[in-house]
């Protein structure tokens, strides 16, 4: 397993795909710098929340779900290109382990991106001269929570990217699921149950219970955990059966 992971990391690290890691955090940084947080409506207890709010909408709602799909396609691309699957699976490895290794690699990359994004939030705050104490909830809920919320999305996208050679097809599926999240987050009936809305819900730090965006943790985890299991198991089983 260590061997497969090492090999997967090696292949990714040598491809230019790894630069994608910086795209999101940089975009977030730019948005955060452009938007004047002091003009945002609402009295916040802590200005850091405002900084995050200004950056999150684009990042968590659209960018994060979409880019997970792009990453998934990227790490399958070089296998699809010139018989990579054939070669990989003719080695003494099980398909299950290959699937898990690819999955672990993906979530590690997303974690890296989340950490970079945290850096962006920090820079935005410094540039805007925020003096309030840095709320650690940003780290726990936004960064790690948002990361965990992508787990089911990653599983689904990995499965689809293994299935289809082209980039456009998995992306189209991803888009079809991501767009409704824009509506879902505004609905307290559907929002909590819609997996593609979870990265946003997790990354959002509103505070009090009356807030429309507030969703209890355990509920989130049930939705995320449940959809993760479904997507992961489907992808895993599909890969077992796939003819190469």
């Amino acid at each position: 397993m260590i061997g497969i992971l090492g090999s997967e990391w090696y292949k990714l690290q040598k491809s230019k795909a790894i630069f994608l890691l910086f795209a999101g955090p940089i975009a977030g940084l730019l948005i955060g710098l452009v938007v004047d947080i002091n003009l945002l409506p609402g009295e916040a207890i802590n200005k850091w929340h405002l900084a995050l709010l200004s950056m999150n909408l684009n990042y968590a709602l659209l960018f994060l779900p979409l880019i997970t799909g792009v990453f998934a396609s990227m790490i399958c691309r070089y296998e699809h290109q010139a018989g990579g699957w054939k070669q990989l699976l003719a080695m003494p490895v099980t398909r299950g382990k290959v699937f898990i290794a690819k999955y672990l690699l993906l979530v590690t990359v997303i974690l890296g991106m989340q950490i970079l994004y945290l850096g962006s939030v920090f820079v935005v705050g410094i540039v805007h001269g925020i003096t309030d104490p840095f709320p650690m909830v940003i780290v726990w809920k936004s960064i790690l929570g948002g990361w965990i919320a992508t787990f089911p999305l990653v599983a689904l996208q990995l499965g689809i990217s293994i299935m289809w050679k082209s980039f456009a097809a998995p992306f189209a599926v991803n888009v079809c699921f991501t767009l409704p999240a824009i509506l879902a987050i505004n609905s307290d009936r559907f929002g909590p149950y819609y997996p593609w809305a979870q990265p946003f819900s997790m990354m959002y730090i509103g505070g009090n219970t009356e807030d429309v965006f507030f969703i209890p943790w355990d509920q989130l985890l049930t939705v995320v955990g449940g959809s993760f299991l479904i997507f992961f198991i489907c992808g895993y089983l599909y890969f077992q059966r796939k003819a190469v």
Partner: peptide
């Protein structure tokens, strides 16, 4: 060890 049909390789490496 095997070589099936066309050789397999990673073009970016």
């Amino acid at each position: 060890g095997s070589l099936v049909e066309n050789p397999s390789y990673y073009p970016h490496l």
